[in-house]
Nucleic acid binder design. Structure first.
Lengths: 225, 225
DNA sequence: CCGGTTGAGTGTCAAAATTACACTTACAAA
DNA sequence: TTTGTAAGTGTAATTTTGACACTCAACCGG
């Protein structure tokens, strides 16, 4: 058997990516969802998705899909799972790999999002999604939650500089439960890679809240071996 | 644009599964690896893999690949990750999804394994593997280790009935560090889903060691909501 | 200018979980 | 009956986690 034949006796499939795009606003997690104005499943809600193209890495396809929708590159993205049931897409057989992305919700390109008929929807209010996208969301949420307990990925949902009150609200949203303020700040104080910038945010309090930033070098120094 | 055209403008790809098959013997984790007597990469070591076929779920393809090699069905298997770099398979473009499987190493079909030119290799001694299979192994190992700290998946590597000494040796192999015997037994004692069978194993000690089994009903009762 | 309001910031103690640690027992073989 | 081997057992110290309430700074309105 030639090497060519080795491959060619096997079928090929469409490969897609679907992206669970998380944002954080007003104390709640949101997802960027599309109300589809195109077939198939026109009119229904879905994740941002797209097909993998010739010569394109799987990860890159996911980055492209998110960039085309939000204008944002360089996001924190992680692969969640690949869904390969024969009948999962009623149109044709498609293997789809889900990725989650974390977005600073202040930064996305509003024009692009509008043009795609996409909307930020707060988590508790998300509608039924097409195909198996509901399952993708719950798998992504579980995985993101787990990662957030292990490393400070949540920071990617906040602006460069943030207050501890914002950070706490974020973790409360991610974990879905209230956190004691003093215990939280005690824990953060031990993380030398979350450092004061010296700046002060006065938008929320008369007193003003110290601004912090994530220091990637210190973090990598502590945990990469 | 018709629905047909929606799909057909996009390329298709080969979809493969590669399986990291773990066993446990003599206090060490092993992998079932193939020394390939077929192209491509004939003569080199690889994971057990195969292509997804028409009308076959992705998970089922992974089960089939493991079953064809070991004769074992009904194994504990979990998807690890999908590898989609353009150049990862030097032959043709293939998207490959890795799964790990946990095998009771006493039970596999020796004829089948021999026929496939496959061998159990203890973890510290595994050779260089083809393509990106090394990376698959290390990702699978990390994932399996994590899962083992969270739920008793390791039990799938032991026979139905096992002694606490075996169980401890297993966890020491999975975690890669020694465990205090009394603390370990204290922890196990709290898990009512690991129960004495009443049987006694005399193969290792004159005194005899109590045999235990995993009670799936009790476990599911405790943790499924 | 002073009292009120708002969110920021801070420390201690109790409970729970984790870790370290060494000897006795049962049995079979010599 | 002595000896060797793996099985089995409890306690105390340490660390980690969780509960809890007031003061501070600054601005606002009267």
């Amino acid at each position: 058997m030639t090497q060519q034949a080795f491959y060619s006796v096997h079928p090929k499939f469409h490969a897609a990516v679907d992206c669970i795009i998380f944002g954080f606003e007003e104390g709640e997690l949101s997802l960027l969802l599309l109300q589809r104005n195109f077939e198939p499943a026109k009119g229904r809600w879905s994740l941002a998705g797209g097909f993998v193209e010739e010569g394109e890495d799987l990860d890159d396809a996911a980055r492209r899909v998110v960039a085309e929708l939000t204008g944002l590159d360089d996001l924190y993205m992680r692969q969640v799972h690949t869904y390969g049931e024969v009948e999962r897409d009623p149109g044709e057989r498609v293997l789809s790999t889900a990725y989650y992305a974390l977005v600073d919700i202040k930064k996305y390109d509003r024009e692009l999002v509008r043009a795609h008929n996409a909307f930020w929807v707060k988590l508790p209010a998300i509608p039924r999604l097409i195909f198996d996208h509901d399952r993708m969301v719950s798998d992504a949420l579980r995985f993101m939650r787990y990662q957030a307990t292990v490393k400070p990925v949540g920071i990617n949902l906040l602006p460069e500089e943030f207050t501890l009150t914002q950070l706490q609200a974020l973790y409360e949203a991610i974990l879905g439960e209230p956190i004691d303020k003093r215990n939280f700040r005690k824990r953060i104080a031990q993380m030398d890679y979350i450092e004061k910038t010296g700046g002060i945010d006065k938008t929320l309090s008369r007193k003003g809240a110290a601004l912090y930033r994530f220091n990637r070098e210190k973090y990598d120094g502590n945990f990469k071996i």
